[in-house]
Amino acid sequence: MSTCTTASRDLDEPLAGTAATARTWLLLEQPGPWGPKALTSSHLDPELGRALEVAAEGTGVRIALIRRPGRHADCGTPAARQIYAAHTLPGNVWLRTATTSEPERLLDLDFTALGRGDSGTFDSVFRAEPHTGDPLAFVCTNGKRDRCCALLGRPLATELTSSGVEGVWEVTHLGGHRFSPTLLVLPFGYAYGRAQAPHVKEILQGVRDGRVVVEGCRGSSAWERPAQAAELAVRTAAHEYAADALTVVRTDGTAPRWEVTVAHTDGRLWRVLVAQGASLPPRPDSCGSPLGSPARMDVVSVRELLTTVVGGPAHC
């Protein structure tokens, strides 16, 4: 039976520039079944879920539910839940963790401050601490949103966990069902598609070493989609894989064409031309959806700008 992932893979649809955008992630443990819109269709109080959606809107914070890999019996509400908050903007990357028996206290957070990278609100409400363990891998497994996420994501999460990989969670929704299995890796916030267990292990080792694995990468969630594609293109062109080396300093233009300026911590600058195209021939955006032409981000050119150092920072 054909699926959206089969069509996307067979048509070699590019992955770069397809990651969900969120400068800050807020992840709440919620075992049991998830519905299509998990914040309001799970064992989480739906009124709390709706209030969280409203609180996060327009703040740069993306909220998702997580659960540990394995069988998901309908076993009710846990006594204590794991929660994570992570900011992914280069220069201020952090990952904080806490547990709570009162998920409604999430509404006490200052979502605007959290979205701009201030961890103080999360720390004060939940007495959070820095996450000091292995990097975290969140694999999308919500089959109620798209069956491919369950058919492909759940076995990946199970395989990783059974092989001894620490820090693996299932997550409700990362977007891009047709790229399943999809995952988000924290603390750096890069998303991946069409993931296989050996590749995920390589990605996680890269995070431990402070590196970004570009193969299979959809982009950094810190940036909008044209900038995601541009940053990955610069990494490839410059052979620069240190996670904290590059940042997007400017994006000019509107769809379907942008000029993105990417900066290196050593002062180098690149100008990247990105064009939005339509994926052809038509294919389903997700299982059961009509045929369409999903937008794609095509890097037209990558040009390093000449820079000179005059009494300090580089100038172009």
Rank of each mutant, 00 (worst) to 15 (best):
M1F: 14
A7P: 00
S8A: 07
R9L: 03
D10S: 03
D10I: 05
E13W: 06
T24F: 05
W25A: 15
W25T: 15
L27R: 01
L27D: 08
W34E: 02
P36T: 04
A38H: 03
L39Q: 02
L39M: 00
H43G: 15
L44H: 07
A51R: 00
E53M: 03
V54N: 00
A55Y: 01
G58H: 07
T59C: 03
V61G: 04
R62T: 13
R67V: 14
P69E: 08
A73M: 13
T77M: 12
R81W: 04
I83W: 03
H87L: 13
L89I: 15
N92L: 15
V93R: 14
R96K: 15
S101P: 10
L106K: 01
D108S: 06
T112L: 04
A113F: 09
L114M: 13
R116K: 12
D118H: 09
D123R: 12
S124Q: 10
F138T: 03
N142Y: 09
N142A: 08
N142I: 03
R145I: 04
A150I: 11
G153H: 05
L156P: 01
A157L: 04
T158D: 13
V168K: 00
V171I: 13
H173F: 03
L174V: 10
T182I: 01
V185K: 05
P187F: 06
G189F: 10
Y190W: 06
G193R: 02
Q205E: 06
G206D: 01
R208M: 01
R211P: 10
V212W: 02
V212T: 04
V213D: 00
V214F: 02
E215M: 00
E215R: 00
G216K: 02
W223S: 14
E224N: 14
R225Y: 09
A227H: 14
Q228C: 12
E231G: 08
A237R: 09
A238E: 12
E240Y: 12
T247F: 12
V248G: 10
V248C: 09
V249L: 11
D252A: 15
D252T: 13
D252S: 15
P256V: 13
P256E: 15
T261N: 07
L269E: 07
V272P: 10
L273S: 14
A275T: 14
G277H: 12
P281F: 00
D298H: 14
V300F: 08
V310K: 10
P313R: 07
